[in-house]
Nucleic acid binder design. Structure first.
Lengths: 208, 208
DNA sequence: ACCTGAACACCGTTCAAGT
DNA sequence: ACCTGAACACCGTTCAAGT
């Protein structure tokens, strides 16, 4: 039986359906391609219908950012300080790399919502439990978050594996001696290693 | 005498004039308000004339980002490693804070130009001189840069001094215990201190 | 070489009207 | 309560025409 009583409504719009379709649109075509009209087309609906569930384009983008944020899993509750922070950092990174074209929404927008507070709580709790005074804990949180945002912004905006050879030659011929000397390492970027290196420095500094 | 021989041409367009007017437009009205048509209006020129000097809107934004980057002064050449890195970090920050609404162009776009390489050289040179092997020097550069980008993204996107009291109450009533406990420190952000704290950690770690 | 203006295919959002 | 479509004031960019 393909229909129940009253058959399932074909085109129920909802905030959630809109945000998910929006995220899919960003994933496929990039942030620049997002428009209310195109999203409506994709949902088989009049553009104006979206405004019944979402406050406008800007609120739509904020909503998509929150969908991404909400996908960050909570860290294991029994872990120590360092493992907790590290797990959260890696989860955050994985969530962003899972939607690289949408990630800038999270990385560059001021999100004041409750959703954004859950990861904050998850970082702050072990810091306070480890005996950090609240002001120091917030300092630490913000330093790590700044590094995460900066690193991910780079990963996510990076060209999809620049050919390398051409880049190398360019750097070596730049006329800048230090740049030329380090050219082989500037031409490529092992994002994984870069992430581990910087995160390690910061977590070391937060060891009680 | 208000005119010299042949009188100064009234409406000479040039790439430089366009980029500077673009930066002024961003400063005054924000990134979202930038359009080729509005910029042309501001320059007293047909919109299409801009295309003779700039490759399109995206290239315009890249050009504005480079104007910002070019304004970063070189560090004093005789300083030690730490002072050089610190001076550059502060100069970078000052340049961005001088144009907070345009800063995201620098912070979020992949800039492959020569202009972007000058600060790289300025950081790399003292690291290599201090005896860092090139791969480690690049690691250090990237960690500091990630932190700078993340910090500045936060400073620059921050609401112009959120009322504070309202925010505080919101955090305390969030139901999240660690967030509530640290609420007084989460509600405000001393960007200067935050910057010094994180930068200190990273520069300490790069001490030879 | 540079500037112009018309034209094309789009935007976000308001508003009055429908169910 | 939700959806629709026309309308308004915009966009970026192509193209043919001017100087």
């Amino acid at each position: 039986m393909t229909t129940r009583r009253g058959r399932p409504p074909r085109n129920v719009l909802s905030r959630e359906r809109i945000l998910l379709a929006g995220l899919a649109l960003v994933d496929e075509e990039g942030l620049g391609a997002v428009s209310m009209r195109k999203l409506a087309r994709r949902l088989g609906v009049d553009p104006m219908s979206l405004y019944n569930h979402v406050d406008g384009k800007d609120a739509l983008l904020d909503g998509i950012a929150e969908v991404l944020l909400a996908a960050i899993p909570a860290p294991p509750p029994d872990a120590g300080l360092r493992e907790t922070m590290s797990a959260l950092a890696h989860s955050f990174r994985a969530a962003m790399l899972g939607h690289p074209r949408a990630a800038p929404l999270v990385l560059s927008r001021r999100l004041a919502s409750m959703t954004a507070l859950a990861p904050v709580e998850a970082v702050l709790a072990p810091l306070l439990a480890a005996g950090f005074p609240p002001d120091r804990a917030v300092h630490g949180l913000r330093a790590v978050l700044a590094f995460l945002i900066g690193t991910l912004m780079r990963e996510v905006e990076a060209a999809p594996t620049f050919s390398g050879a051409h880049r190398l030659a360019e750097l070596e011929g730049s006329g800048l001696p230090a740049v030329a000397a380090a050219a082989p390492f500037l031409a490529v970027c092992d994002h994984e290693a870069e992430f581990a290196f910087g995160l390690g420095i910061l977590l070391d500094a937060l060891e009680p």
